[in-house]
């Protein structure tokens, strides 16, 4: 697997003189700044995601992790910067990118069944105005089966547990048959069985040559679940293979000043030391 450590100390080159990046990288971000109400949330982010890898985006609350994803996907406006997927703008490769938003971002009392939600992953393939055909329903059903929810397909989504709801979201992303999976905190508040399902799914995706970029809040499991990490706190603190960037020094820079988190980080690094292959 090819890896590259991004040196964030250097000023990002202006867009005109930026070196042509690899069309192999599923997500390249150049000099991206995002601001809400004139208050910057992300500052000058430069990042190239490695192909065929599982990447964790890690950082404290308010570090701009979700914003990074949303801005890359054009869901929140960027003040400056350029984002490309496999070397082309997002609008040309929408079907190759599956997005799993935070579970709390939607209304789970909405009158749809689990299968209805998974079918939404195929709308792009189906196209405007056409109804969801049987073939697409079968494909969606297969994805529900992959996350172990086939027998709950016709349940209204409010009757599912939190973990099951998260798995419905994953199944919806699978139904898109994308090459890059961008997930916002898929592990937040899920049960152990769901966590295992997600981890297995991520590994299967990587083995099938796909990539995943996952906002992750649990420092304990970063080294265990992911190949690469992007440490973020408004700016990119460090990015690269976990064993290189997941260091006490970098974590200190990312979580600087937050003592409880810092000790948590130290503990995580200690564990990582044991786990390093």
């Amino acid at each position: 697997m090819t890896t590259s450590v991004v040196h964030t100390s250097r000023r990002p080159s202006s867009l005109a003189e930026r070196p042509e990046h690899s069309a192999d990288s599923p997500l390249s971000i150049h000099a991206m700044t995002v601001a809400y109400q004139r208050k910057p949330v992300l500052w000058d982010v430069d990042y190239d995601a490695p192909p065929r890898a599982l990447v964790a985006i890690v950082g404290p609350n308010g570090a701009g992790k979700s914003t990074l994803i949303k801005a890359a996907l054009g869901l929140v406006p960027r003040a400056t910067g350029l984002v490309e997927f496999w070397g082309v703008p997002f609008k040309h490769v929408r079907e190759r990118v599956a997005y799993v938003p935070q579970r709390e971002s939607v209304d789970w009392t909405f009158p749809v069944s689990a299968l209805d939600v998974v079918c939404m992953g195929r709308y792009r393939r189906i196209g405007w105005f056409r109804p969801v055909g049987q073939a697409h329903k079968r494909a969606a059903m297969a994805c529900l089966d992959r996350v172990g929810l086939a027998d709950l397909a016709h349940r209204q989504i409010s009757q599912l547990s939190g973990g099951q709801q998260q798995r419905v979201f994953l199944a919806r992303a699978l139904a898109q048959e994308a090459d890059l999976y961008i997930m916002d905190e898929p592990f937040a508040g899920v049960d152990a069985a769901t966590e295992r399902t997600i981890v297995q799914l991520l590994k299967d995706l990587r083995d099938a040559g796909k990539s995943a970029i996952v906002v992750h809040h649990d420092l304990q499991t970063v080294t265990q679940y992911f190949d690469h990490a992007l440490l973020l706190n408004m700016r990119v603190v460090a990015a690269g293979p976990v064993e290189q960037v997941f260091t006490p020094d970098n974590l200190q820079k990312t979580y600087g000043g937050r003592l409880t988190l810092l000790s948590e980080a130290a503990e995580a690094v200690a564990r990582a030391g044991i786990n390093v292959r």
Partner: peptide, 11 residues
Amino acid sequence: FDPALATAQGF
């Protein structure tokens, strides 16, 4: 149901 997903998918 999910405006973010709809927008990301081009709807």
